[in-house]
């Protein structure tokens, strides 16, 4: 039976049980090859930072993990389950992976509290009172508890992004994806969001972070993955990557951003 071994760990990761595995992933936009044979596996509790020049495919890679982007070939598994094509099963799996967007994407017509309780009530079937209690605790944890009854347009970008993190955490996800979470923020608001993310990393959350914040990559990441033109070129601990990048493209990239 060929299918009997489907769920078993691949030999390369024998003895370990990675939470997220991408194997031979390819994606095209028309004839543009945006992801080329990407293999990546992420352990439980690991914080992986994806960096690379714009257009390198790092955001696309992040979005394929909860199938906001479809892929043309390859396999993506979360906790040993393959991502389904569409429908209720995909929705269920998506709810187990939190996503934080560059443009926050808080529901504009809802208060922060309503933003955070919508998923738990509609997807998890929690009672409103329970969902609100949990949501308030999360909003307090990210430091916006005092704004729970405000609309997103009434608070700052940094506060919106922290509330968006609380919304994702309310689903009690197994992993969190961050797609350039601080790129749309004013400089003085970046740290308040990064601090929340550091706290989350310290609490043992599995995280994939697309970012240009090299300070965060150095201090919070377990691994740095460098991408260019749709391929993973380097995959190393932050100290090794920043001190001694092996590939020419990474050296070039780092020399350009570190001088700033």
């Amino acid at each position: 039976m060929q299918f009997a071994v489907e769920g078993a760990p691949a030999p390369a990761t024998a003895g370990r049980d990675p939470l997220i595995v991408l194997a031979g992933v390819n994606k095209f936009y028309g004839s543009h090859h945006v992801l080329r044979d990407v293999d990546l596996s992420i352990e439980r509790g690991e914080v992986v930072v994806l960096i690379g020049p714009s257009g390198s495919g790092k955001s696309t890679l992040c979005r394929t993990i909860n199938r906001l982007e479809s892929i043309q070939s390859g396999r993506i598994t979360i906790d040993r389950q393959a991502l389904p094509e569409e429908g209720a099963e995909l929705a269920r799996l998506r709810s187990e992976v939190g996503m934080v967007f560059q443009s926050f994407n808080l529901f504009a017509h809802m208060t922060l509290l309503q933003n955070v309780t919508l998923g738990p009530i509609k997807v998890r079937g929690l009672r409103r009172a329970d969902a609100e209690e949990k949501a308030m605790a999360l909003l307090e944890r990210v430091g916006v508890g005092g704004h729970a009854h405000k609309l997103p347009s009434q608070i700052s970008g940094g506060q919106q992004q922290r509330a968006a993190i609380a919304r994702a955490l309310a689903m009690e996800p197994k992993a969190m994806l961050f797609d350039e979470p601080t790129s749309a923020l004013d400089p003085e608001m970046i740290n308040e969001v990064l601090d929340v993310m550091r706290g989350l990393a310290d609490s043992g959350m599995t995280m994939i972070v697309v970012t240009h914040e090299m300070g965060f990559a150095r201090s919070a990441a377990h691994r740095v993955v460098f991408m260019d033109q749709g391929s993973i070129l380097e995959d190393a601990p932050p100290a090794a990557f920043f001190e001694n990048p092996r590939c020419e493209r990474a050296r070039d990239f780092l020399s350009k951003i570190i001088t700033h």
Binding site: R94, E96, V97, G98, F107, G119, V123, A164, R167, A168
Partner: peptide
């Protein structure tokens, strides 16, 4: 996208 990401 945000709605789909929380599993709706």
């Amino acid at each position: 996208e945000a709605a789909r990401a929380i599993g709706l």
